[in-house]
Amino acid sequence: MTPYWSYLLTTVGAVGLFLAGRMQRTGWLVGLGAQGLWIAYALSTRQYGFLISALVYGSVYARNYLAWRRTAHQRIETRPCT
């Protein structure tokens, strides 16, 4: 493995959190997609513990995305008509 993996994983994860913090749904999706990178890393380095963390983090990202989407949808429905 090259040292670039750690830079890539850190950058993608940080970008996802940054976007989620700015209330952009793409942040949760970037974080969810990053778990694919973690799975590839775990398999290529034979560090199988990262598979568990990718599943846990992936489920949290998916749950938060669905909650964000539900909240955003409710805001649209309750917006007063002008």
Rank of each mutant, 00 (worst) to 15 (best):
G31T: 07
Y7V: 11
V60N: 04
L43E: 01
A54W: 01
M23N: 12
L9W: 13
Q47I: 06
W5I: 06
S59I: 06
A54K: 00
R25W: 10
G49A: 12
G27H: 00
Q24R: 15
L66R: 03
Q74M: 10
Y57H: 05
R70P: 01
F50D: 00
A72P: 05
S44Q: 15
Y61M: 08
Q24W: 11
Y48F: 14
G27S: 04
L8F: 11
Q24C: 07
V60M: 13
A14L: 15
G49S: 08
F18M: 15
W5P: 06
F50N: 01
V60K: 01
T2M: 11
I39H: 02
W68K: 01
G21F: 15
A20F: 09
S6H: 13
T11Y: 04
W5D: 07
Q74N: 07
W38V: 05
T71K: 13
G58I: 08
W5S: 05
Y4F: 11
L55T: 08
R22C: 14
A54F: 01
Q24A: 06
L9K: 15
R63Q: 02
Y65Q: 00
S59R: 09
W38G: 00
G16H: 01
P80T: 05
R79M: 08
A40C: 06
A67Y: 11
S53G: 01
